[in-house]
Design a protein around this nucleic acid. Structure first.
Length: 306
DNA sequence: AGCTCTTCCTGAAAGC
DNA sequence: TGCTTTCAGGAAGAGC
């Protein structure tokens, strides 16, 4: 599931092949995840890709008029959110079209930018270039850029659970379920603790943990749990470094306690009950803490064929 | 302000 | 073996 490290990896890959190319044509399959497909079909062809950037979990492909083109509609941004299963890849147009591929951008170098999304939880839209600043204002702070004081103020003032805060894209943008759990484990903070009740050093530990987890995951090119692939179609490997996420029932790598799973903020949440003591939490229900009776199969590699 | 629940969607795993 | 049910999750909206 693409979170900040996965999106950053995709963006870095797209940056190698897209800037300088012109989009000649756009074709759509299913469009229920596209804000206005007709508008994209009208605006985008003939525009040249100037840069590719990331804002939280959003990919922004910046487009400008190509001097050789008739398209005089001015600069635009193509905004893509990968949702749960979105993939943006640059391929040879002759390459087999994988199932659930719904958008095709023909490029002037003969290749094709394809968007594939099995569950269609992603989103695609265009904005006039001038609208990007307002779009970014809707998002929270970038977790890799936020300073200590700002973090303490933004997080420490909130009367809500840490897990819910980390997932709230209007507070910090880019953190999702995997990296929220992994960050809280490294900061030794229970997911259901109330942010407002944390001491300054705990807030700083959380900021540091979020940074470290995200930076490390970027180095591993993201976590591939099910569908995530980078712009070249390759998997990341950070899932092998997870210390709590989807490890419920297994021993904590630090203290050997059994990793537990509970629902916080409507999300499956994994934590070590010893390393992350409950402290002062809100509405913590023991009934919601569960442990799998059988270890889950985490990926195809763990299936042993005999 | 913040919480829970629901909806969208598909495929894999679990359950029977 | 094969069919049915459950679950995973990002984001948005409803309702409390």
């Amino acid at each position: 599931m693409p979170e900040l490290p996965e999106v950053e990896t995709v963006v870095r890959g797209l940056r190698v092949s897209l800037p300088g190319r012109t989009i000649d044509e756009v074709r759509f399959g299913k469009t229920d995840f596209v804000d206005d497909p007709l508008l994209i079909s009208e605006r985008v062809p003939g525009l040249k890709i100037s840069s590719v950037t990331r804002h939280g979990k959003f990919i922004c492909i910046q487009l400008e008029p190509d001097s050789a083109s008739q398209n005089m509609s001015g600069g635009h941004c193509l905004i893509v959110h990968l949702g749960m299963t979105g993939q943006l890849t640059v391929t040879d147009p002759g390459a087999p079209v994988k199932p659930h591929t719904h958008v095709f951008f023909a490029l002037n170098d003969g290749r094709e930018l394809r968007y594939r999304d099995v569950r269609r939880f992603g989103r695609m839209l265009t904005l006039p270039a001038a609208g990007l600043a307002d779009f970014k204002k809707l998002l929270g702070k970038e977790p890799l850029e936020i300073g200590e004081e700002e973090f303490c103020q933004v997080i420490g003032s909130r009367r809500t659970r840490l897990k819910a805060l980390l997932l709230d894209q209007t507070v910090l943008c880019g953190v999702g379920n995997i990296y929220a759990d992994e960050s809280l484990f490294r900061a030794r903070l229970h997911p259901a603790r109330t942010a407002e009740k944390l001491k300054r050093e705990q807030l700083l530990a959380l900021r540091q943990a979020v940074r470290e987890v995200l930076e490390e995951a970027i180095r591993f090119r993201g976590s591939s749990i099910s569908d995530y692939r980078d712009s070249e179609g390759k998997s990341g490997t950070f899932q092998l470094q997870h210390r709590v996420y989807q490890r419920d029932g297994e021993p904590c790598l630090h203290c050997k306690s059994v990793i537990r799973r509970m629902i916080v903020a409507g999300r499956s949440t994994h934590f070590c009950p010893t390393c992350q003591p409950a402290g002062r939490t809100r509405n913590i229900s023991k009934k919601k803490t569960t442990q799998r009776t059988r270890p889950r199969v985490r990926n195809s590699k763990s299936k042993k064929s005999k």
